[in-house]
């Protein structure tokens, strides 16, 4: 059976892990924002801006890690805009988020056209190279899948643990979660809701941008329009799927990525010759919706998600 051949092939799992990596960055970023009580719909645009900024930095001759840093700073700048409008000004998080997505996407495309007016096919950069982790990479099946990836993929998975530790093991994480549950509780304990929420949105947006940068710097090696292609929206669903928990959200990202890797391979089987390829493209989305239906029924939404907090208002 073809399906078993695919599932027992290390390249399939390696692809799943690779596809999951940008989703993990951006999902963690969104999760941080939402845990603090702010829905960040700027995610899609911030990923585009991050993808462009990281790639451009490297194209201009700087190092790969400098590119990651610049992408993150650009993401944080858009995050700052989002945070100012939604936190102290208390504007609608939906409208601001969509606005930031449009602005960030358009800015990235504009900057691209401005800097490379003559180019028809976008230039490639030298991306992050995979490196094998000694011993572990020699494990059958999971070795090549998990331990022969690029540095950014390792970073993505390390961040899952880091964000979990931050949220559940530090005073900052506690304050952040409380800001998303009941900001009045945070205020009554002498902390600034505004500072915590703004910090969360800015930091989260930085992670989203790194997720975007992964696409240009570790996957496709160049920047082109529509490359983020709805991944940001998928990440919003993944946060819900993961019930606002980093570990579960990362698992969700892996699951989605596995479906994505699977559909590409299914297209190449004899079945793919008969069934229109568009149906295969639908597979990860359909399965994600089904998983979402079953997984998130009992999820505990942060109680103050999308509820602005105004100090001193009666």
């Amino acid at each position: 059976m073809d399906l078993f051949d695919i599932l027992l092939n290390a390249s399939f799992w390696a692809a799943a892990v690779r596809i999951a990596s940008p989703l993990i960055f951006a999902t963690l970023g969104e999760l941080i924002c939402e845990r603090a009580g702010v829905l960040n719909l700027g995610i899609e645009g911030i990923m585009v801006a991050g993808a462009f900024a990281g790639w451009m930095t490297v194209y201009l001759g700087f190092g790969l890690w400098t590119g990651v840093l610049i992408a993150m700073l650009v993401g944080m700048a858009f995050g700052f805009l989002h945070a100012v409008l939604t936190v102290p000004f208390g504007l609608s998080q939906h409208v601001v988020g969509l606005g930031v997505t449009l602005l960030a996407t358009a800015t990235a495309y504009f900057a691209y056209r401005l800097s490379l007016p003559e180019v028809t096919s976008p230039p490639k950069i030298e991306p992050f190279q995979p490196f094998e982790i000694p011993l572990l990479a020699k494990l059958p099946l999971i070795g090549p899948a998990f331990f022969a990836q690029t540095a950014l993929t390792y970073l993505a998975f390390a961040l899952v643990l880091a964000v979990w530790l931050l949220l559940y093991r530090t005073p900052l994480g506690l304050a952040l979660r409380a800001a998303g549950e009941n900001p009045a509780a945070v205020e009554a304990q002498g902390l600034s809701v505004t500072a915590i929420r703004m910090g969360a949105v800015i930091a989260g947006s930085g992670l989203m941008a790194v997720g975007g940068a992964f696409l240009t710097m570790s996957a496709f090696s160049s920047f082109f329009f529509e490359m983020v292609n709805g991944r940001g929206w998928i990440c919003i669903a993944l946060v819900v799927f993961g019930a606002w928990r980093p570990g579960k959200a990362a698992l969700g990202a892996l699951l989605f990525a596995a479906f994505d890797a699977l559909q590409v391979r299914l297209q190449q089987t004899p079945m793919g010759a008969i069934v229109p390829y568009q149906l295969f493209l639908m597979v990860p989305y359909v399965l994600s919706i089904l998983a979402l239906v079953f997984m998130s029924r009992r999820a505990e939404v942060p109680a103050a998600l999308m509820v602005p907090f105004n100090k001193g208002e009666r």
Binding site: A178, E181, N182, A303
Partner: peptide, 11 residues
């Protein structure tokens, strides 16, 4: 001013 989803100790 309590966060319902957090534990007593966390609050």
């Amino acid at each position: 001013t309590l966060a319902d989803n957090l534990s007593v100790l966390d609050n």
